[in-house]
Amino acid sequence: MLSIQSISKSYKKQQVLQNVSFDAAPGECIGLLGPNGCGKSTLLHILSGTDTPDSGTILFDGKNLLKNPSLQSTKIGYVAQNNPLFPDMTAMDHLKLWYSATEYSIEDDLKDGFLSILKIEPFLHKKAKALSGGMQKRLSIACALASRPTLLLLDEPDAALDLVCKEDIREYIRLYCAQGNTVLLATHEEADFDLCSKLILLKDGHARTLAADTPVKEIIEYLS
Rank of each mutant, 00 (worst) to 15 (best):
M1D: 12
S3N: 14
I4G: 03
S6P: 09
I7N: 04
K9H: 10
K9F: 11
Q14M: 10
Q18G: 08
S21I: 05
P26H: 06
P26M: 08
C29L: 08
L32T: 00
L33P: 02
P35Y: 06
P35D: 13
P35M: 11
N36M: 05
N36T: 09
T42L: 09
I46H: 05
L47I: 02
G49E: 09
D51K: 11
T52F: 15
P53S: 06
L59P: 06
L59N: 12
K63Y: 07
N64A: 12
P69L: 02
S70E: 15
L71P: 01
S73T: 11
T74Q: 15
G77C: 05
Q81R: 05
N83R: 11
P84L: 01
F86M: 10
D88H: 12
M89A: 13
M89P: 10
T90Q: 06
T90F: 03
M92R: 14
K96P: 08
L97D: 09
Y99K: 08
Y99P: 06
A101C: 13
A101H: 12
Y104D: 15
Y104T: 12
E107T: 09
D112G: 13
G113M: 08
F114W: 08
L115Y: 00
L118H: 02
F123K: 02
F123Y: 14
H125P: 05
K129C: 13
L131M: 12
K137Y: 07
C143Q: 12
A146G: 04
A146R: 00
S147L: 04
L153G: 08
L154G: 00
E156R: 05
L161D: 05
L161S: 03
D162E: 08
D162P: 10
D162C: 07
K166C: 15
R170Y: 12
E171Y: 08
Q179L: 14
G180L: 10
T182I: 11
V183M: 01
V183R: 02
A186E: 01
A186L: 04
H188Q: 14
C196L: 06
L199M: 03
L202D: 08
D204V: 00
G205N: 04
A207F: 06
T209D: 09
T209S: 14
P215Y: 00
E218C: 01
E218T: 07
I219P: 00
I220D: 03
